[in-house]
Simulated assay, not measured.
Amino acid sequence: MSKREDIIEPEMAGRARRGLVYSEILGWIDLGHAQGRDIINLLEEMRRGEISTDPYYVLFMHNQ
């Protein structure tokens, strides 16, 4: 759960790896989850699963 001290100024969002920033268009953005690395990892796991010869594969979402 986020706390008030997690809120950062919008101009710091481009350099921050974590924190909360408010956007009038998107609302509150959790920068820790908005990095985009999670989808890259998920797509890579899917690619490896699709090229394997196993009858199925399991996807895991890893924390950063």
Rank of each mutant, 00 (worst) to 15 (best):
S2R: 13
S2T: 10
S2Y: 07
S2H: 10
R4F: 11
E5S: 09
I7R: 14
I7C: 13
I8W: 05
I8L: 10
E9D: 14
E9R: 14
E9C: 12
E9H: 15
E9A: 15
P10H: 03
P10R: 05
E11T: 06
A13Q: 05
A13H: 05
G14K: 12
G14H: 05
A16F: 07
R17T: 08
R18Q: 08
R18T: 09
G19C: 02
G19H: 03
G19S: 02
G19F: 00
L20H: 11
S23C: 14
S23T: 12
S23G: 10
E24K: 03
E24V: 01
L26R: 15
G27Q: 12
I29Y: 08
L31M: 00
L31C: 02
G32L: 05
G32W: 00
H33C: 13
A34Q: 05
A34I: 03
G36W: 00
G36N: 00
R37I: 05
R37E: 07
R37Q: 06
I39N: 06
I39M: 12
I40G: 08
N41D: 11
L42E: 12
L42Y: 11
L42R: 13
L43H: 08
E44D: 13
E44Y: 07
E44K: 06
R48E: 15
G49S: 03
E50L: 04
E50H: 03
I51S: 10
I51D: 06
S52N: 09
T53D: 12
T53Y: 04
T53W: 01
T53R: 06
P55Q: 01
P55I: 00
Y56L: 01
Y56P: 01
Y57S: 09
Y57L: 01
L59D: 15
F60V: 01
M61W: 04
H62N: 04
H62P: 00
N63M: 15
